[in-house]
Simulated assay, not measured.
Amino acid sequence: MTNPKNAANSATRKARWITLVAAGAAVVSLTVGALPASAQQQDPAPAPTSSRIGDQRYSLDEKTLTELMTPDAVATGTMVRVSGAGVPGHVWTKATGPLSQDPAASFRIGSATKLFTSTLVMQLVAEGRFTLDTPIHEVLPETIPAHWKPITIGQLLSHTSGLGMYCAPLGDGLGLTPEKVVAAWTAEGCPAPQYPVTKQQYNGGNYFILGLAIEKVTGHSYADELQRRITRPLGLRHTYLPRTGDASMPTPSLAEPTPKEPWAWAEGGMISNAPDMDRFMKALLGGRLLPPAQQEQLFVKPELSKAEKIPYSLGGLMFFTVDGTEVWGKTGSMAQYSSGVFGTADGRRTVTWSFLPAPKAKSTDIVDRVGGIVKAAL
């Protein structure tokens, strides 16, 4: 890892962010339905008449959401922001437990970083730098062993590359780089992916490789491209990738920093806040960040996703159905935070959350809590 102060514990930390804790990246299994209509003009906010507020398409179960946010054996504190169509005042936000009450408090978004990475990749596809069918070895010749079957950009995005877990030691954390992390998955002696790939296999290594591809074809750092293409144009002043070795958190932050200092780079290392994540997700789902062709590809469902309880689109978005409405987004787990953002496919309604899992919380309960928040909010 890039922080030498905690090098002795780096192996444990790295295993955590590399594995990404399936519970933190999962949502409840729900039936996949049809893609909703494209963005339309926003509805005026209706007056609340009960705990279920909103119109027939967009409703906010405020009572259930408030109950889910009460500190308990699953989460000691929770922040939720819901915005868009059907929300009185257009924004509902609340924080409970030992969390900052500032609606702009920052937190680590974990694997929701992948949404930004996939957006950058899709923008580069639109520019003709590569295609979704381009083998990654054509972009990064030394990355994938020559005897492996070619893995494409699209397969990395959709977690259909077949890439397994890392098989080489990552060292003590001193001087760790994206190249060294990728080498841990692809070093000599690592088992080649088994073909044909029969299922989506969520893997942070896919997005480390994509981060390197972004840097290779642009000639700029991932952080610079992130700022130039997404955060600066959208005015996301609280969203960034920390510099190597920077373990600090902005003020105010949602919760007190922990001694654990994550890294996770292009696959899980970003910091943001709820208003910024809300703005980003509305822009992404609303078609402001990608040309029409790539926007359509963002919602394509690989054949393998149809058999998965936790499916991912060609653009790397998780998707499932809530009361007949399909929602898209990403969860993330990093340091003390379990966070995520989801929205309707037209971008008219979004929910952003971050909570602190209780010390003895079961992974299944964390998964259920995430699913409950999304369902009550959307």
Score class of each variant (00 low, 15 high):
Met1Lys: 09
Met1Pro: 07
Thr2Tyr: 00
Asn3Ala: 12
Asn6Trp: 06
Asn6Val: 15
Ala8Gln: 07
Ala11Phe: 14
Trp17Gln: 12
Ala22Met: 10
Gly24Ala: 09
Ala26Lys: 08
Leu35Gly: 09
Leu35Met: 11
Pro44Cys: 04
Pro46Cys: 05
Thr49Cys: 10
Ile53Gln: 02
Gly54Val: 09
Tyr58Phe: 13
Glu62Asp: 06
Glu62Met: 08
Glu67Gln: 05
Thr70Leu: 07
Pro71Asp: 01
Pro71Leu: 01
Val74Asn: 00
Ala75Asn: 07
Gly77Thr: 03
Met79Arg: 01
Val80Ser: 02
Val82Glu: 03
Val82His: 09
Ser83Cys: 02
Gly97Leu: 09
Leu99Tyr: 04
Leu99Cys: 15
Gln101Trp: 02
Gln101Leu: 09
Gln101Lys: 00
Ser106Val: 02
Leu115Val: 14
Leu115Tyr: 02
Ser118Met: 00
Thr119Ile: 13
Val125Trp: 00
Ala126Met: 06
Glu127Ala: 11
Gly128Tyr: 05
Thr131Met: 04
Asp133Trp: 05
Leu140Ala: 13
Pro141Phe: 08
Glu142Arg: 13
Lys149His: 07
Lys149Glu: 09
Gly154Met: 08
His159Phe: 06
Leu163Ile: 15
Tyr166Trp: 12
Gly171Phe: 00
Gly175Tyr: 05
Glu188Met: 12
Ala192Met: 04
Pro196Tyr: 08
Val197Leu: 09
Val197Pro: 02
Lys199Gln: 11
Gln200Tyr: 14
Asn203Tyr: 04
Gly204Val: 07
Leu212Tyr: 12
Glu215Ala: 13
Glu215Trp: 03
Thr218Ile: 15
Ala223Pro: 08
Asp224Phe: 02
Glu225Asp: 14
Gln227Ala: 11
Arg232Ala: 04
Leu236Gly: 07
Tyr240Gln: 11
Pro250Thr: 14
Ser253Phe: 03
Leu254Val: 10
Ala255Val: 15
Ala255Asn: 05
Ala255His: 05
Pro257Ile: 09
Thr258Phe: 01
Pro259His: 13
Pro259Trp: 14
Ala264Pro: 09
Trp265Lys: 00
Ala266Met: 12
Ala266Lys: 13
Ile271Lys: 02
Asp276Ser: 03
Asp278Thr: 10
Arg279His: 11
Met281Gln: 11
Lys282Asn: 12
Lys282Phe: 01
Ala283Tyr: 06
Leu285Ala: 10
Gly287Leu: 04
Pro291Arg: 11
Ala293Ser: 14
Phe299Asn: 04
Pro302His: 04
Ser305Ile: 15
Ser305Phe: 02
Ser313Asn: 11
Met318Gln: 09
Phe320Ile: 12
Trp328Val: 14
Gly329Trp: 06
Lys330Gly: 03
Gly332Gln: 01
Gly332Asp: 05
Gly332Phe: 11
Ser333Gln: 12
Gln336Thr: 15
Tyr337Pro: 15
Phe342Asn: 06
Thr344Gln: 05
Asp346Trp: 05
Gly347Ile: 15
Arg349Thr: 09
Thr350Tyr: 02
Val351Thr: 10
Lys362Pro: 06
Lys362Gln: 10
Ile366Pro: 13
Leu378Cys: 01
